[in-house]
Amino acid sequence: MDQDQLTRQIIDALTSVAPEVEAGALDPEVSFRDQYEIDSVDFLNFVLRLEQELGVKIPEVDYPKLSSLKGCRSYLGRVLGG
């Protein structure tokens, strides 16, 4: 999966839970929570959605690595690539 495809999947998982998020305005460096109101249940649903869509298992300890778009890309890129 290339980076663009992965980014689209991440954005789709995020907007499935929080559809008010405007993908174009999302700052990849800043955590989702600092840009939008994402509560802990939303974040959990987002991660579960990623697991389902990408067919990966994400251990709880790695959740903080998924807090921004950049973090998601780098973490998931590694998991899917390796």
Partner: peptide, 19 residues
Amino acid sequence: RRQLLAHCRRRLGAVVAPK
């Protein structure tokens, strides 16, 4: 579904809006 969810989250905030 996404439109309704976005509407609720904008109006009510994440904690009150439906999941």
